[in-house]
Amino acid sequence: MDDEPLRDWADRRDAKIGRLRAMPVVSGDGPRGSHLYPETPRAIERWNGHAWEPYGFAADLDETKAVLYPEASRPPSPEPVSKPLGTGTGKHRKPPAPR
């Protein structure tokens, strides 16, 4: 059996510390998919390396996404404008039509 070194395992475990997740606050058999109850409040939990601990609270799915994915709520940085293909005789281009 190939066991991984303890140091590698510890590094993988420590890389997950601080990860956030949201759990819908619903009655019943437990957590459900977020798309099923978009208007329900969510408890936001943070992984501390050993267990999920309470971190925050969100009123609905939109607020939850803003907390979990802050980079998605920022406007995108302007992309450089690509140049349209100009005239040329590349192998992939069609030859000019005869007149």
Rank of each mutant, 00 (worst) to 15 (best):
W9T: 00
P95Q: 10
A22C: 13
G49N: 08
P95E: 11
S73G: 00
P70V: 11
E53A: 12
P80N: 05
R19P: 00
G90H: 09
W47D: 03
P96A: 05
P98T: 11
A97G: 11
L6A: 09
D29Q: 11
G30E: 08
A22F: 13
R42D: 04
K91L: 13
T87W: 03
A58I: 03
T40S: 13
L20Q: 05
A59Y: 04
P95A: 14
A15V: 00
A43C: 13
D60E: 04
S73P: 00
L20I: 03
D2F: 13
P84R: 10
A97T: 08
P76Y: 05
T87H: 03
D62M: 06
S82D: 12
D3R: 03
D62Y: 03
P38S: 14
W52D: 05
A59L: 07
A10H: 02
T64V: 01
P38M: 09
E63K: 03
R13G: 01
D60C: 14
H92T: 02
R21C: 07
R12I: 00
P96I: 01
E71K: 12
P98W: 03
A59N: 06
M1H: 06
P95G: 15
G86S: 08
L6I: 07
P5E: 12
L6T: 00
R7F: 10
R99S: 07
